[in-house]
Design a protein around this nucleic acid. Structure first.
Lengths: 117, 117
DNA sequence: TATAGTAGTTACCTAAAGGAAAGTGAAATT
DNA sequence: AATTTCACTTTCCTTTAGGTAACTACTATA
């Protein structure tokens, strides 16, 4: 009695989703992980593999990803000194998510182009 | 000859991923879809089911999602008039992505809390 | 008559994201 | 000696996201 109809609870799903979104937010983090994942390990190569990214943004995102323990910045003590970016093993846990993002994007583009035919 | 070593190509993955990110960007769109998906169909119920969302942001995101054909705003001609938000069938295609986001978030929280024990 | 609920809108503001362009310092190359 | 490469940094600026608070028009309820 005095029973109010309330909203359905979905926090068990929303909370972890938001935790994920907090880590991979923005346009650039997942693309950077993909680029390093296929073998780009130098700053300039990563930059050239991602259309539209500026060095400022790339530097900032690389720092964020390092702090989240998704990649490592490695200084190679040769002459001249080189910098190599490598994914941490933990970044592999993102693989299912990356495929889900990719698959949905492929399907979505199909849908959008079909609606113009 | 004159062959320069170039970056590895990963555009086939990055492009669709960015298409997806363009649709589901921000903190709120996926949580809103989850909330409606579990049965919240009224503005106020959706708002109360998502901690921290303001009516302004909710109204704006609902319009965006309607434009992307992920949900529908339905006017129920009773007295008083009611508004119901319903997911389009197309929103079901987001399910694997939502599970990927949820699972990674759960695992990530486990990792973060473990590192403090 | 007063209060509460529904579905928002409006105005104002801050912070973060991101783009453009140039610069930097060290080393290598021509 | 001049240019190029690498890995950024710096400055300046605009856009977008999002937060806060108040307000609206309508209806229902006490």
């Amino acid at each position: 009695m005095a029973q109010k109809k309330v909203h359905c609870d979905c926090l068990e799903t929303i909370k972890p989703v938001r935790d994920t979104l907090d880590v991979i937010n923005g346009k650039w983090k997942i693309p950077i992980i993909i680029s390093i994942g296929v073998g780009n390990d130098r700053f300039t190569d990563i930059q050239e593999s991602i259309p539209g990214i500026s060095p400022k943004v790339l530097a900032k995102e690389l720092k964020d990803l390092e702090q989240h323990q998704l990649l490592r910045r490695i200084i190679i003590e040769e002459y001249p000194v080189k910098i190599s970016y490598q994914l941490e093993e933990y970044a592999d846990t993102l693989t299912p998510l990356i495929y889900a993002l990719k698959d949905w994007g492929i399907n979505h583009r199909k849908k959008v182009t079909e609606s113009f035919s």
